[in-house]
């Protein structure tokens, strides 16, 4: 991807840690790669379990875009989130889905990466709670928008003390699995 600003939308169930993933992506880029990111999220009356989204704009320059116009990258970890938020993703957007949850993804012309992030979290890490970290690792590998080193630093700094190891393991598992896919 070249030197413009990239619009990233992360979505899934409420409770999957989508917003935390958005914050970590923003921190990785802006604090550990010294580039620029802005992050925002949807605040609806949605209860836990409803669709949740976090959005990040990434650029090498200062950003004045405070709302996503057209996602360049769209990650969906649930069918509901996919259906609700795919709308304005443009034709060339990179789409990453968890195939175990997003079973109906009509995306004729778009490039779709199916990464079983929940399965990886469950089988390789033994905790589904780290699904957001697996997804971040996969996103880093597929999009190249953030380096894995910066991502690891951001994860270590943000997650609750004592959980760094397992979260880093999850990020790497997602990263490796998506790299293999390419």
């Amino acid at each position: 991807m070249n030197n413009k600003e990239y619009q990233v939308r992360l979505s899934g169930f409420g409770g999957q840690g989508i917003i935390l993933a958005g914050i970590i992506l923003g921190e990785a880029v802006s604090l550990y790669e010294n580039r620029f990111a802005v992050q925002f999220q949807s605040y609806g009356p949605e209860a836990r379990g409803g669709a949740s989204r976090a959005e990040v704009v990434i650029s090498d320059e200062e950003i004045d875009l405070l709302e996503l116009i057209e996602p360049d990258v769209f990650l969906a970890l649930s069918q509901q989130a996919f259906d609700k938020y795919i709308g304005d993703a443009h034709e060339k957007a990179l789409v990453i889905v968890d195939p175990d949850y997003v079973t109906n993804a009509p995306l004729s012309s778009r490039k779709v990466f199916a990464v079983p992030v929940s399965r990886i979290a469950r089988e390789q890490i033994g905790k589904t709670i780290v699904i957001n970290m697996v997804a971040l690792g996969a996103l880093a590998a597929i999009t190249g928008l953030v380096g894995i080193d910066a991502l690891k630093k951001a994860v270590s700094a943000r997650v609750p003390p004592g959980t760094e190891k397992i979260n880093l393991k999850a990020v790497l598992a997602g990263y490796e699995s998506a790299r293999e896919m390419n």
């Binding site: 923003g26 802006s30 990111a37 992050q39 925002f40 999220q41 605040y43 950003i63 405070l66 709302e67």
Partner: peptide, 10 residues
Amino acid sequence: DAIIGHVREK
């Protein structure tokens, strides 16, 4: 406003 209040940036 709700945008400026909730946006995160460096």
